[in-house]
């Protein structure tokens, strides 16, 4: 494993995601070992071939790792130990390869699904958030009628409105074609910086890592 640039911060830094002595094993086979602190607004990029355990790392942080894996170490978010918490209590948001818009809900319904922070003005916040990614007036639409890029934006907006305290991205651009990938990368990283929360990006695309601009960890 090699590590480039970045620095390890002091313990229990406010808003930080700390991965302390994290080690993953599959059937006794050692996969990876990490010791990192990601500051708010910062991105830790984990690169490596498939099967290297990088997606499992995200699953472990978010609280739904498959029981066939074994993990040691701790994940500390904003000073709280979130290791082993049920997924809905970690405060960690996810962005997958596929946008995964619920097919039984409208675009607005999808965004509202995860929205935190009171019910009063939720419709307005949903509309504003959609407008911020260029999807004003799309709320009533069937997700199936959107283009690939539009769906990815809806997924991003849904994630942002759920007010995560940390964000995990599992190869979020890998299924898009090159021009769309560039455009979306810009939108996503801009929103990540605005949110000012720590993020972990798993990818095998060097351009993703460059755009993220944080610490890069490569697993072999």
């Amino acid at each position: 494993m090699e590590r480039t640039s970045g620095h390890a911060g002091p313990l229990a830094e406010a808003g930080c995601l700390q991965l302390q002595d994290v080690a993953l094993e599959l059937h006794g086979h050692h996969l990876l070992h990490l010791n990192e602190t990601i500051s708010p607004g910062g991105v830790l990029t984990v690169m490596g071939p498939s099967g290297s355990g990088k997606s499992t790392l995200l699953a472990w942080i978010a609280g739904f790792m498959s029981p066939s894996f074994h993990a040691t170490g701790r994940a500390i978010l904003d000073g709280e130990d979130i290791t082993g918490r049920p997924a809905e209590k970690t405060g960690v948001g996810l962005l997958f390869q596929d946008p995964l818009l619920f097919p039984h809900l409208s675009v607005a319904g999808n965004v509202k699904f995860g929205a935190r922070g009171g019910k009063d003005d939720v419709a307005e916040r949903v509309e504003n958030a959609l407008a911020s990614v260029g999807l004003a007036g799309f709320g009533h639409r069937d997700p199936e009628t959107l283009s690939g890029g539009q769906r990815a934006r809806v997924a991003l907006v849904r994630l942002i409105l759920s007010r995560p305290r940390a964000i995990l991205l599992d190869e979020p651009f890998s299924k898009l074609d090159t021009p769309l990938r560039r455009e979306l990368r810009a939108v996503v990283f801009e929103h990540l910086r605005q949110q000012n929360v720590p993020a972990v990006l798993v990818t095998h695309d060097q351009e993703d890592a460059d755009a993220a601009g944080g610490i890069i960890v490569t697993i072999d």
């Binding site: 049920p86 997924a87 996810l94 995964l100 699904f113 935190r116 849904r158 759920s162």
Partner: peptide, 21 residues
């Protein structure tokens, strides 16, 4: 299974994920 994971990362409990997703 990602649907359920997604739902839970959006704050749903396991039971809510069953009923709503």
């Amino acid at each position: 299974f990602r649907w359920v994971i997604l739902g839970r990362s959006l704050g749903l409990s396991v039971n809510q994920a069953f009923w709503r997703i």
